[in-house]
Amino acid sequence: MNKGKALVPILYIIFLMLPIYWLVNMSFKTTNEILGTFTLFPSEFTVENYVKIFTDPTWYMGYVNSLIYVLINTVISVTVALPAAYAFSRYRFLGDKHLFFWLLTNRMAPPAVFALPFFQLYSAIGLFDTPIAVALAHTLFNIPLAVWILEGFMSGVPKELDETAYVDGHSFWSFFLKIFVPTIAAGIGVAAFFCFMFSWVELLLAKTLTSVAAKPIAATMTRTASTSGYELGLLAAAGTLTIIPGAFVIYFVRNYIAKGFALGRV
């Protein structure tokens, strides 16, 4: 590995880190310092912005709400996607290819198109402003993705595994749960990672489907920015905190990331 080549990823990572550094930097400044002076490091270092977030329920409940619907969504998406992906990878059945493409089209639906009808649908069935509404709405794009990823991983498992298990006297479900699921554990991890990711970052639907009780953190941020003037330090602190769950999740799947992004099919 020559040194010139190593420079490219280093420069790229520096470019990626600059806006994040600026956000973190700002989160430790007072509003006066942000608006009054231009400093590369906080001169009056303050954690007041973070204290405010951790003591005010309207702020920290935003994080709790977001995590709740993201987790519900991940569990639902992966659970229903598992048998479906198995069917697509092992069987041919009436309309299988059309069904697969139809599922993918939902990944292509712009949330802006669905915002208003979703609001009406979830209000009509009385789920408006609950984490379940957001979790269900996010399955629209996460289930197709989970099926796609899991199907890729499952197709990499030779069919002999299934047949040997049946010969050994396993019933379908005992084979599926005790042998097959552990075999594709990496794939399940990757699918869960993607579901977490897309549910965590989506805001338009999450904001449309909630008002008070289940308001996600991202929506709390937007509303604060527009109602109580521009409290940039507070906004920056809240933004910094939203990066942490993502960083955690990436750390756990770091060894599968490369394979996972190829959807298991390379």
Binding site: P19, W22, L203, A218, I257
Partner: peptide
């Protein structure tokens, strides 16, 4: 890989807000 994947996991409105103040 971890550092590069980081921008992908930041909520989209935070990305917008971050670039705004940047």
């Amino acid at each position: 890989l971890v550092l590069m994947a980081l921008p992908l996991l930041i909520p989209w409105n935070v990305v917008g807000a971050m670039w705004n103040i940047f």
